[in-house]
């Protein structure tokens, strides 16, 4: 890459409960646009994101080097990383079901900074309207909006977004993709995504994981054009790629 990457992962290895899930993963994330992390189920995509943000489970261990700018990330506590501008939208939304929408957002507020409610409510007007509703009673799509919205209340240098369209209806998938497209205009995104239509729409770069290692990196469009490659790496047919 010609430009300095926003995030560089070098030789990242993760063991969880004795299983060697990542075995020396190295890749970089461009300072603009969406870098997508692809691979079959269980290949370690979410594990990679969680390791970057310091959420490797207690019975696991992450080794290697992860840098955001000049800063080394591994072994620093999650809340420090997040305050340093690493936004994380987890798999399965993880909104606080017992809290109201407004409370979910309020939780993300930080002392000394003004939360960007204007920006968030412009992207997701629904969150403003449903402020008093319990997050657990929102639909899957609305929960996803909330999960993204609360991260956008603060300034981020990089967003990690884990499978934002999982389990959503096709129409909602498009909505989420649109939002991410707008978000990515101002902040780089490392995205884990299974829906290739979304990948096609958003991704500029792609990193493909296979069996705990990086199998392919490069231009995302290039990858999607090569059906044979996509099929062998991702286990999907050409019909699905071109749908």
């Amino acid at each position: 890459m010609a430009v300095e990457p926003i995030l560089s992962v070098e030789d990242l290895s993760v063991r969880i409960a004795g299983l060697h899930i990542l075995q020396g993963v190295s890749f970089e994330v461009a300072p603009t646009g969406v870098t997508v992390l692809l691979g079959r189920n269980g290949v370690g995509k979410s594990t990679t994101l969680r390791a970057i943000v310091g959420l490797t489970p207690r019975n696991g261990e992450a080794r290697g080097t992860v840098r955001m700018g000049a800063q080394s990330l591994l072994a620093r506590p999650t809340h420090r990383l997040v305050r340093g501008g690493l936004g994380y939208v987890p798999e399965d939304r993880c909104v606080f079901a017992g809290l109201t929408v407004a409370e979910n957002l309020r939780l993300a507020e930080r002392r000394g900074t003004t939360p960007a409610y204007d920006k968030v409510f412009a992207l997701f007007p629904e969150l403003d309207r449903r402020g008093r509703q319990r997050a657990g009673s929102l639909s899957g799509g609305q929960q996803q909006m909330l999960a993204i919205g609360r991260v956008l209340l603060n300034d981020n240098r990089l967003l990690l977004v884990d499978e934002p369209t999982k389990g959503l209806a096709p129409k909602v998938v498009t909505e989420v993709a649109e939002v991410l497209e707008r978000v990515a205009e101002s902040v780089p995104v490392l995205l884990v995504e299974q829906n290739l239509a979304v990948v096609r729409r958003l991704a500029s770069d792609a990193v493909v994981l296979s069996a705990g290692r990086v199998a392919w990196t490069g231009d995302a469009r290039e990858l999607l054009l090569e059906t044979a490659l996509t099929k062998s790496l991702l286990g999907v047919g050409s019909a699905e790629v071109h749908s």
């Binding site: 063991r15 409960a17 004795g18 299983l19 060697h20 019975n59």
Partner: peptide
Amino acid sequence: MTEVKSAEVPA
């Protein structure tokens, strides 16, 4: 004892 398990499993 625990020898029966693979070496992969941490103590």
